[in-house]
Design a protein around this nucleic acid. Structure first.
Lengths: 133, 133
DNA sequence: CATTATTCCGAGTATTTTACTCGGCATTAA
DNA sequence: TTAATGCCGAGTAAAATACTCGGAATAATG
């Protein structure tokens, strides 16, 4: 039960953007340099973040990325859901069809996963990006 | 960020044992039949649970497994730690060496993972096996 | 207008992890 | 002695992860 590099790098990238976007925007290259992460891989992650509306971009020379909202309005949960997918510890909490035949709401253990997932989710929603800079 | 089959099946198996071990012990085969999981795969998981002291076995004909403690004294956290490994969302919380060079306690995001991990852990420790039967 | 810095896009690939399977030995009840 | 079980170690197929790469589109700058 680990967070993948998408989650780890994605959060690092967002922290970096938040820390450096005060004047204009930050280029992918500079993010990669500061965070010491692969530029091409970061590109993918930031594409997701952009699609989800957490960052916006300007193209061309001097282009780059900025946050769309102030860091206090962006939670770790917002970020993780974008780069990691739903904060649910088992598939069947997001997708009812996924638990094979039978009604998975009858499964004794399902409620366990729901409670654990809820607890991560809540914790993640209660940490804002502004706390990390 | 998903629980693997080890976690899912492991918990199911423990619930099954708890539900059926009242008179003597339950065989691997019967667990596999009731839970509809692969016998040989379950064997591995139960081996871990045994090694960790959550179940004990008797060999030979009529053998099988039982809990070592009453189900109210076994938490979901106990079980998950055995089959899934430490309930830490990133490696560097269990193994300091794992975060490459540099002191990872300085990493701004580390505390995030610590808080989220703590929150899963706490939730898991507060659900006992007896609640699931 | 040419050049350069940048984002954007889609596809491809190597590595790692997961999720198993299998064969055979060891032990014990009947 | 036989049959039912647990025990052990190794092997393997599939899936997911963690990337890389090449090139097109866009915009500032000289």
């Amino acid at each position: 039960m680990k967070i993948s590099t998408r989650g780890r790098y994605g959060l690092k990238a967002m922290v970096d953007i938040a820390e450096n976007c005060s004047e204009g925007c930050v280029s992918l290259k500079s993010i990669a340099e500061r965070t010491n992460l692969s530029e091409s891989y970061l590109e993918q992650l930031i594409a997701s973040l952009k699609k989800a509306g957490l960052v916006k971009s300007t193209r061309g020379a001097n282009g780059g990325y900025t946050l769309t909202r102030p860091p206090e309005d962006i939670s770790v949960g917002d970020i993780l859901r974008v780069v990691e997918g739903p904060l649910k510890l088992v598939e069947c909490l997001s997708d009812k069809e996924s638990c094979g035949m039978g009604d998975c709401s009858l499964c004794a253990t399902r409620d366990v996963w729901a409670r654990l997932s809820e607890s991560v989710s809540e914790a993640a929603d209660n940490i804002s990006l502004s706390e990390l800079i």
